[in-house]
Computed example of a mutant assay.
Amino acid sequence: MTDLEDLDRQVTECRACPRLVAWREEVARTKRAAFAAEEYWGRPVPGFGPPDAALLIVGLAPAAHGANRTGRMFTGDRSGDVLYAALHAVGLASQPHSVHIADGLTLYRTRITAPVRCAPPANKPTPDERDRCRVWLTQELTLLRPTLRAIVVLGAFGWQALLPVLATAWQIPTPRPRFAHATHITLPATDPAGSALHLLGSYHVSQQNTFTGRLTPAMLEAVLLEAKKAAEL
């Protein structure tokens, strides 16, 4: 893999998981009534953000009528509304809204990705689908490693999917750290010349969390500000 642009192109061509391929394409054909006039993306969704990112945001998977429709992570759905508003509030995004892939949004030294790149039925990928998709996250982390200093993981699924990938470059404590909102641990590099990585957790920006108040904008912004400081942004 030569660079992130090449990786992102290869991600969009993946058809490794038959169930996810069938679902994402069925959703793109049938559409939601509110988006009936739009052409859905209907493919795996690559990461979004610059190749020199110091901060990485890790979610779960594309939403069926969000990123699976627009082709950009957390774009065009309620979860994205919350995330990008918070990123803008702490100075990591150029605007607080993410409506479509050509809306002009820019992330500052920040990239957004997910351990599963296709929209799964009921937002629940299987363990096998998660593990099969791991190759993309592994390659993405390898390319980002020279500049990456902090990661914010949104939710327990992303946390569990990410730790095995991080173990190739950073030292993971035993027992493995558990996910919790606002947790912050520092992982030393496996290579003495490498940089340590700050790993932070936040509840996912799902409607289940944001509509019930389990995750408030202030809570999310606090985690992002801590991550921004850790990444020296």
Rank of each mutant, 00 (worst) to 15 (best):
Met1Tyr: 12
Thr2Met: 09
Thr2Tyr: 04
Asp3Val: 10
Asp6Ser: 12
Arg9Thr: 15
Gln10Met: 11
Val11Ser: 06
Cys14Leu: 09
Arg15Leu: 13
Ala16Ser: 15
Cys17Leu: 10
Leu20Asn: 11
Glu25Val: 01
Thr30Met: 01
Lys31Asp: 00
Phe35Gln: 11
Ala36Thr: 03
Ala37His: 14
Glu39His: 09
Glu39Gly: 04
Tyr40Asn: 03
Tyr40Pro: 01
Gly42Met: 07
Gly42Thr: 10
Arg43His: 13
Pro44Trp: 03
Pro46Ala: 02
Leu55Arg: 04
Leu56Asn: 09
Ile57Val: 15
Val58Gly: 07
Val58His: 06
Ala63Met: 00
Ala64Phe: 00
His65Asp: 09
Ala67Asp: 01
Met73Val: 07
Gly76Arg: 01
Arg78Ile: 00
Leu87Pro: 12
Ala89Met: 08
Gly91Pro: 06
Leu92Cys: 05
Ala93Asn: 10
Ala93Ser: 13
Ala93Cys: 11
Pro96Leu: 03
His97Ser: 13
Ser98Trp: 06
Ser98Pro: 13
Val99Met: 05
Leu105Met: 10
Tyr108Ile: 09
Thr110Cys: 12
Pro115Asp: 15
Arg117Ala: 07
Arg117Asp: 09
Pro121Ala: 02
Ala122Lys: 11
Ala122Met: 07
Asn123Arg: 13
Pro127Gln: 07
Asp128Ser: 12
Glu129Trp: 01
Arg132Asn: 12
Cys133Thr: 14
Arg134Glu: 15
Val135Thr: 13
Trp136Leu: 03
Gln139Phe: 04
Gln139Cys: 08
Gln139Ser: 12
Glu140Tyr: 07
Leu141Arg: 03
Leu141Thr: 01
Arg145Val: 08
Thr147Pro: 02
Leu148Arg: 00
Arg149Val: 03
Val153Arg: 01
Gly155Tyr: 00
Gly155Met: 04
Phe157Asn: 06
Leu166Glu: 15
Ala167Pro: 02
Thr168Ala: 15
Ala169Lys: 09
Ala169Tyr: 14
Gln171Glu: 15
Gln171Ile: 15
Thr174Asp: 14
Thr174Phe: 10
Pro175Gln: 03
Arg176Glu: 15
Arg176Ile: 14
Arg176Trp: 14
Pro177Trp: 05
Ala180Ser: 14
Thr183Ala: 12
His184Phe: 05
Ile185Asn: 08
Thr186Lys: 02
Leu187Met: 11
Pro188Asn: 02
Pro188Ala: 00
Pro188Lys: 00
Thr190Ser: 09
Thr190Met: 08
Asp191Gly: 07
Asp191Val: 03
Pro192Ala: 00
Ala193Glu: 11
Gly194Val: 09
Leu197Cys: 10
His198Glu: 13
Gly201Leu: 06
Ser202Phe: 06
Ser206Tyr: 04
Asn209Pro: 02
Thr210Asn: 00
Phe211Asn: 13
Gly213Ile: 08
Arg214Pro: 01
Leu215Ile: 14
Leu215Met: 11
Ala222Gln: 14
Val223Leu: 07
Leu224Ser: 05
Ala227Trp: 02
Lys229Tyr: 03
Leu233Asn: 08
